[in-house]
């Protein structure tokens, strides 16, 4: 089947898609966008988190046909060529990236949190990111990064 949908602001078409492929597979193997990750492909880790019509979902459980005419945004669609999105920048600056495999999913989830809640407290950050597993960092620097990104979005100086 052919699937046509918007990815990171651009209309993309994938041909010869087998019905059993997931949105994740289509992004990674057909559209050259391997940013969303395949840590479990069972909806149990959040590494495949992308925006589908502005809502964070696990791309691994979205059947390919379901994205027809819809809008997807991946980690590759945050920021621009020249500049990183504040969330991306904060993750690097605060040391929240080790192996980085969980990072794209966490960045999308954090990005969503901050735009809905520009001043999140620790408990709110933890609850919002509970669907993203990380094995390397112990999460603390991730929480630091979200605070930094949120402060940046509020236009505050970050220390």
């Amino acid at each position: 089947m052919r699937v046509k949908f918007t990815v990171n602001g651009e209309e993309r078409t994938a041909d010869d898609v087998w019905e059993g492929e997931s949105l994740l597979y289509v992004l990674r193997e057909r559209l050259g966008l391997p940013g969303a990750k395949n840590a479990c492909e069972q909806g149990e880790c959040g590494s495949c988190t992308v925006y589908l019509d502005d809502t964070p979902v696990c791309a691994c459980l979205v059947a390919a046909g379901q994205v027809q005419d819809r809008e997807v945004r991946t980690v590759e669609g945050l920021g621009s060529e020249e500049e990183l999105d504040p969330v991306q920048q904060a993750f690097i600056e605060r040391g929240a990236v080790q192996c980085g495999f969980c990072t794209p999913g966490l960045i999308v989830a954090a990005h969503d949190l901050i735009r809905r809640n520009p001043c999140p407290k620790d408990a709110e950050i933890r609850e919002a990111l509970a669907g993203n597993l990380c094995r390397c960092t112990g999460y603390e620097k991730i929480i630091d990064a979200v605070h930094t990104a949120a402060a940046h979005s509020r236009g505050e100086a970050t220390s």
Binding site: G43, C58, V62, A109
Partner: peptide, 9 residues
């Protein structure tokens, strides 16, 4: 139940 992402779906 589940996670935020799964509850969205």
């Amino acid at each position: 139940g589940a996670s935020g992402q799964l509850r969205n779906m």
